[in-house]
Design a protein around this nucleic acid. Structure first.
Lengths: 165, 165
DNA sequence: CAAAAATATTTTATGCTTGAAATAAAATCC
DNA sequence: GGATTTTATTTCAAGCATAAAATATTTTTG
């Protein structure tokens, strides 16, 4: 079979293909899986909780810091731009899920904290989120999950060392 | 926690932890790696080619279809909304990288095709893109890449079967 | 202390993304 | 053949994301 099939559909790797092509295919699969999962999370958050992944992410970060986070700390933890967080926190504040409280002694800064309502709402969302992931990744058993996590940790470390922040 | 949550340091799994927590950790690592790679691709496309990942994706799709694609086919291939593609194609057309050509016999539709300029530009971008991926995933050898690709294909199939499109 | 530098945050301009509504042009059906 | 439905695409409103500029407030420093 000399058919050259370079379509999007899975093909066997040509025997003499350069390694870079194999890695490119690996990346494309990786990205595809990641986007599928993310898309479903977005859909469900919207359908079941009328919220979004970015808002969920902000609440997740705040839920780990009882004392609250400054805007700049929040954008640091989430690794997104400052201006970005401003808008998301604005919306969460309108919904009553977070509050901005002044930092005594520094009138520039503000702490963002979950409200009681926000904390309760996030608990519900997080439980659902975990169940969705559990369903989607149900094929991964304990041993495989652990080994993939190790492999991904190594990759992330490697990427970090190569200057990808 | 999907996104950007980075509980920076890897924690050992508690012995009695429910499986869902292990899968959640797996997802968080997966997402983190994916976002790091994507962020670097975006940065480099911007710095070296003054373009974006969405534009690159559109050109990549068109480069596989010499004859061109209708707008709806394009959004189907890329799995994004119709309205989304309209704007990206508008910008690529302004840059002279693509053209909309009328479909004879159907005045509603238009074929989008790479121009000669667009084809040449994409060739340069694609070569650089492949090299960036090759560098970032350099730790993956042929055997490991192949096995991970198989695993991801299985995951994607499973997700598809579960209704994640 | 006053000028300069650094820090914390918001604003602005631009682009990506979606779902839903609007337009327009076939295709189908009575 | 004219009304209805379907198909192809764009427009719209809202939200997310970034980099760069603007504000405001501390901190440093000469």
């Amino acid at each position: 079979m000399s058919a050259r099939q370079d379509r999007a559909v899975a093909a066997e790797a040509p025997v003499d293909e350069p390694m870079s092509k194999a890695r490119l295919r690996l990346w494309l699969r990786f990205l595809k899986a990641s986007r599928m999962i993310e898309a479903r999370l977005r859909d469900r958050l919207r359908a079941e909780f009328a919220t979004t992944l970015p808002r969920f992410d902000v609440m997740a970060a705040l839920s780990r810091y009882e004392a609250g986070l400054k805007m700049s700390e929040l954008s640091g933890v989430l690794r997104v731009s400052n201006g970005n967080v401003t808008g998301i926190v604005d919306r969460l504040a309108e919904e009553g899920h977070v509050v901005r409280v002044p930092v005594p002694g520094d009138r520039r800064a503000a702490l963002v904290r979950l409200t009681a309502k926000g904390r309760a709402e996030f608990a519900r969302q997080a439980a659902a989120h975990e169940a969705w992931i559990d369903e989607m990744l149900g094929d991964f058993g304990a041993a495989e999950a652990a080994s993939v996590i190790r492999r991904l940790d190594a990759l992330v470390a490697e990427l970090g060392a190569k200057g990808v922040s």
